[in-house]
């Protein structure tokens, strides 16, 4: 039988092919993981081991002191507070910024797809345009706006900046997602007697899981990792994690505690990693769902 004779040949060929495939994949995985591994290894080494040995060697004496130091003792800026207060600042900034930009983006998407009005595509085009404006261009106008509003150098000020900047993306996500959402459902709810917000809350939002996850990951990662706005619009007591990390690393006083810097950097990256691991599998699914139609 033809299948019987062809089968093994194909099989041996595919074993060889697979071996190469896996080898390539492993090489790339190692290549990408290496920086993280080195950071983790060096964050649990005493400082003199880093100074004397090479970076890749595993630690001879394991210690968690650099982590504790980075968290609550290290000199950041003027005071020796560690990264802890800035970590809190980042959360105080990220959570409202993500929530508000997401809710506004969802309402925008809802209106742009289900309550069409004259010129709605122009409005959408303009909102979309904001996705392509480079950060640097808005710095000075934004500083002026924050100053006028009296929230310059505060966490609410940073929240406002990130909401404004994120709105283009969240609107884009939700508009494309809702474009595929059947309009008859909205009409049915209208006949049933539900109003604008009731339909949004009861019909649309419960079906928006995937796109909410996409938006959270996107916005959280962007806002958490932002450095430029944080550096430009914050004071010492409202600095986010990224700016504090920079201050820690580029601090000019005393010895450079590389192990503490490594620990701090991992700490700074941790929340985005957690968000991605927890909801990552929805990410691709949600992006696809939005991409099919719209």
């Amino acid at each position: 039988m033809s299948t019987a004779t062809e089968g093994p040949q194909l099989g041996s060929g595919s074993v060889f092919g697979r071996a190469i495939l896996y080898a390539v994949l492993i090489v790339f995985a190692v290549y990408y993981l290496l920086p993280l591994v080195i950071m983790l290894l060096n964050s649990v080494k005493p400082l003199d081991e880093i100074r004397s040995g090479n970076l890749i060697a595993p630690p001879q004496h394991w210690t968690l002191q650099p982590w504790l130091s980075a968290w609550s003792e290290a000199q950041v800026g003027v005071q020796a507070t560690g990264l802890k207060p800035y970590f809190v600042n980042s959360f105080l900034m990220v959570i409202p910024a993500v929530t508000i930009s997401m809710v506004l983006g969802a309402i925008n998407g809802y209106v742009l797809t289900k309550y069409r009005f004259k010129g709605d595509s122009i409005v959408f085009g303009l909102i979309l345009f904001s996705c392509f404006i480079p950060f640097q261009i808005v710095l000075i106008p934004m500083a002026k706006v924050l100053g006028t509003l009296g929230i310059a150098g505060t966490v609410p000020g940073l929240v406002l900046v990130h909401v404004v900047y994120g709105l283009g993306f969240t609107t884009l996500f939700f508009r494309n997602y809702y474009a595929a959402f059947p309009t008859e459902l909205i009409r049915s709810a209208q006949v049933d007697g539900a109003g604008f917000f009731r339909i949004f809350w009861r019909i649309l939002l419960p079906s928006s899981g995937p796109i909410i996850v996409v938006t959270i990951i996107w916005q959280f990662t962007n806002i958490w990792n932002d450095f430029l706005f944080g550096a430009s619009f914050s004071d010492f007591d409202s600095q986010p994690m990224t700016v504090a990390l920079n201050n820690l690393v580029s601090s000019s006083t005393g010895v450079k505690e590389y192990n503490v810097h490594f620990a701090g950097a991992v700490l700074a990256a941790l929340p985005t990693l957690v968000v991605y691991i927890v909801s990552g599998r929805y990410f691709v699914r949600g992006l696809m769902a939005g991409a099919v139609k719209g």
Partner: peptide, 26 residues
């Protein structure tokens, strides 16, 4: 008035009972 749509337009996130009740609840 009450309307039956071509695509049925049942609310996907609600049970049948909730679907039936929605108009009354509103």
């Amino acid at each position: 008035i009450a309307m039956v749509f071509q695509s049925y337009a049942l609310y996907p996130n609600m049970s049948v009972a909730k679907n039936l009740a929605f108009g009354l609840e509103m």
